[in-house]
Write a protein that binds this DNA or RNA. Sequence first.
DNA 1: CCTCCACAGGAAGCGCAGGAGT
DNA 2: ACTCCTGCGCTTCCTGTGGAGG
Length: 399
Amino acid sequence: MDNIFEKEFTRDTIFLDRNLITPHYTPKVLPFRDAHIKQVTGILANTLKGQKADNIFIYGKTGTGKTSVTKHVMEQLLNFASGKNIPVLGNYVNCRNHNSKYRVLIKIAKDIYPEENFLGFSAAFVYEKIVDFARKGKQLVFVLDEIDKVKDLDELIYGLTRSNDELQTGGISIIGISNNLMFKDRLDPRTKSSLCEQELVFPPYNASELTEILQQRSTIAFKPGTVDVSAINVAAAIAAQESGDARTAVMLLLRAGEIADTKDSKIVNDVDVKKAKKIVEEEIIFNMVSTLPEQQQLVLYAIAKLSLEKKPMQKITGETEEGILFSGEIYDEYCKISKGLKETTISARWYRQYINELEMYGLIYSTTSGKGFKGQTRLIKLGFEAHKIKNLIERELAG
DNA sequence: CCTCCACAGGAAGCGCAGGAGT
DNA sequence: ACTCCTGCGCTTCCTGTGGAGG
């Protein structure tokens, strides 16, 4: 009898290696980042001469290649060092999963002493073990990705950098990566100056750069001749317009490939990419909305609900525009909803804070009212389709 | 012109959870 | 195990702002 997986297993697919076009994959070639690679390489090269490298702070929006470039250079550095028997050691820590000084230290310690377990030991002890390691003349390079997620970052940076003063040989260098530039200003000035000895900014990609990135990826991930030029161009154009984000571009092509695959098409074209756009957009919205605090979800829900109910408003120019809401009426609606759910209700002040955050996430747009409105208020509009957001939050609150 | 409206957003402070110090 | 401390989410209070209306 046929196993139910038999058909899937033997089915002809347009993918050569699907993994190579997921966002998790770190590409071997990083187009348009030569300058950045060169800079990081130059800075880290000091470790090969037994000197401490400058700390680096890397900033750039999501999907601009920060992590890929850093991982790539680190890999090269460690390979080179181990080939020549130079005592350089590197660690990569994603601070989203290790979001406190203690957790970061534990992660690092476990990497350099794989056979020991430090959970339960005091932070000072773990820290000493790490410095001990450097004391033997080793150069340690720690990559802290999403460094803004670390709660007590000041202490962590202070602790790690201070040790360099007491070390005669060896040294500890830090590469901090963040997509939030503002967070830098919240740091203690001393932390800031030591973390940002070198600063790198990764700009977003433009459409033609994204096109080339997608071309390279598609040749390794898809079978030859299965990706139409139109598919790549459209995917690059969409991603460039939205954010200049390579991750979105790659996701578009991946989902488009899956769409083509499920209908047994032998080629991916622009129509598939346009269909994929909806899916990817929903995935992005879903990720953002589901990580929002519950009260903020309710605020967003109130906006979605009202923009479905409210009639298009007349502008002074005569034209009408749909889905424009006043800040005040949204707050009233939010209060009604949260009271109906027997939830606690946040104050109007904090509601404004939430509105600002929602705007930063791109979930809503807002402008301050000009002529034609009494008083000063904000006009708020949903960034995505109202019923989609509404359904999504209804599901989210139910589950 | 003044006053009111309908907000925006800064400052201070409060309660709480969880980590550090002892 | 216990207090102490600190960051975080939030409230309270307050000052600022730009147009409407008298």
